[in-house]
Amino acid sequence: MAGMVIIFDFDKTIIDCDSDNWVIDQLGATQLFETLLPTMPWNPLLDRMMAEIHAQGKKIYDISEVLKKAPLDRHVASAIRYAYALGFDLRIVSDANVFFIEEILKHHGLIECFTEINTNPSYVDGDGRLRISPFHDFTISSHGCLLCPPNMCKSKIVERIRSEGKKIVYIGDGKGDYCPSLLLGHGDFVMPRRNYPLWDLIQSDPSLVKAEVQEWSYGEEEERVLLQIIRRSEYVDGYRPEMLPPADCKMGLMPGKAHEPLQKALRVPL
């Protein structure tokens, strides 16, 4: 196992859209969502929208079929497969939810590449309705971070991962990815998506981020930047330069390695 963890956000990082909005828009519930948005916190609102969609006769199958159509750039998929084949530890830290993420990753044959998915819980209840709840139950207590949304402080998750003693590559786009970026140090990397909130926040005062910043804008560039970081890594077991493709190589499906079952995300003590 390589001595570096590659942490991906999910929405607008692995897939090129917001999975919550994608499902709502594709299933024709946008107008109701926009009406309720100013009146409810995000996670309860999503749970309410799943109830409305269910009441309109939509089934879990319909949600699953919509998720399979969410845009995922082939270059991003190739980068994930290649990093996995080299033995890197790949994890997801996302403010989406388990059902959306797993359905998309399964459809693209990527779920086995990840050792852990940290995100908002979701499940299908006895009535066949998708239920969504917050990663951190903010109705009971606060996680105490003023930078992050009330349901999730990604730094608390990344701090646990860092305690394993590995260097980190963190790839994200959103405001919620800024807090964990501040946690990283020398020898780590942060990959913000250019002209998205994480990039804007880093640009506002670059001195606050101690990790090396390598920006990207679209799927092919995300792949190229991640491979450049991997080329510089000293953490690949049995690494030889010829193991990596040329910088301009268009990677297709890469051979996988033996894997362990996907681990459920661990709760972070507050």
Rank of each mutant, 00 (worst) to 15 (best):
S94Y: 03
A77C: 04
K68A: 11
N97S: 08
I117D: 03
E102P: 04
R91Y: 02
K106M: 06
L72V: 15
D73K: 11
S78E: 03
D73A: 10
T119K: 07
S64L: 01
Y84G: 11
T119N: 08
R91F: 01
R81C: 07
I101P: 12
N120S: 12
V66A: 15
I80F: 06
A83T: 05
V66F: 01
K69G: 06
E103D: 07
V66L: 01
I92N: 03
E102W: 05
H108F: 15
H107N: 13
L110I: 08
S122P: 09
I111W: 05
N118I: 03
I104W: 02
N120P: 04
L72W: 02
F88I: 00
L90K: 09
P121C: 07
A85E: 03
S78G: 15
I92P: 01
I104E: 04
S78D: 02
G109D: 05
E116I: 05
I63G: 06
I104P: 06
D73E: 14
E103S: 10
I101V: 15
D89I: 00
V76N: 07
S94R: 09
K106N: 12
I101C: 12
G109S: 12
I104R: 08
E65Y: 01
E65G: 03
N120F: 01
L86N: 04
R81W: 04
G87N: 02
A85T: 07
V66E: 00
A96D: 12
R81I: 02
